[in-house]
């Protein structure tokens, strides 16, 4: 696959010109970014978070982060979990209230996270391995969103 077919470069609209030329010098990083996306969004062992739920949460952050083109790519894979992609919904009706509240805070108010946020997930019976999986998803999306936003600015477009 060409790096220009990766989710990140497609969502940022990078195909040619000086920004594309700069990105080609870091092709290995773009390939590794796509590998990371695959590992975080559609892992072989999804734990408590199936692929459609992951895609819905990814779309949720991309929408909240002002990147509709990126959100669109994940919305397509959100299936039955698509309601969780709406940042205005708290996930309670879908049975994911605690997960969604934590996910949003880790992604968007990272500095405010405290030990109690983790212990409240544990109190809900969420396994430590699943807490790590949820953090990786929020963390990877924070990374990808910023790469897309930065590339778009480089290209000369406001986010």
């Amino acid at each position: 696959m060409s790096i220009f077919d990766s989710t990140t470069l497609k969502a940022a609209g990078i195909a040619q010109g000086p920004v594309a030329a700069a990105v080609e010098t870091r092709a290995k990083i773009i390939e590794a970014t796509q590998a990371a996306e695959d590992a975080v969004l559609s892992p072989r062992d999804p734990g408590a978070f199936p692929h459609d739920l992951r895609a819905a949460l990814a779309a949720r952050l991309a929408t909240a982060g002002g990147e509709p083109a990126l959100a669109e790519r994940y919305l397509d894979k959100a299936g039955a979990m698509v309601a969780l992609a709406d940042p205005a919904r708290d996930g309670v009706a879908e049975g994911f209230g605690t997960v969604v509240a934590f996910f949003d805070k880790a992604a968007n108010r990272t500095r405010d996270i405290a030990a109690e946020d983790i212990s409240s997930l544990q109190a809900e019976g969420i396994a430590d391995a699943d807490i790590v999986r949820l953090c990786e998803l929020s963390a990877f999306m924070a990374y990808q969103l910023r790469v897309v936003a930065g590339l778009r600015l480089m290209k000369g477009e406001a986010a």
């Binding site: 920004v19 870091r26 992604a107 924070a142 969103l145 910023r146």
Partner: peptide, 23 residues
């Protein structure tokens, strides 16, 4: 452009690392 790209990548990467370490 190459330097700006590296800055975007390093700042974004720590958006990731911070959400593991700090959380």
């Amino acid at each position: 452009d190459e330097e700006i790209l590296d800055l975007i990548l390093s700042a974004a990467l720590f958006g990731w690392a911070n959400r593991l370490m700090h959380v």
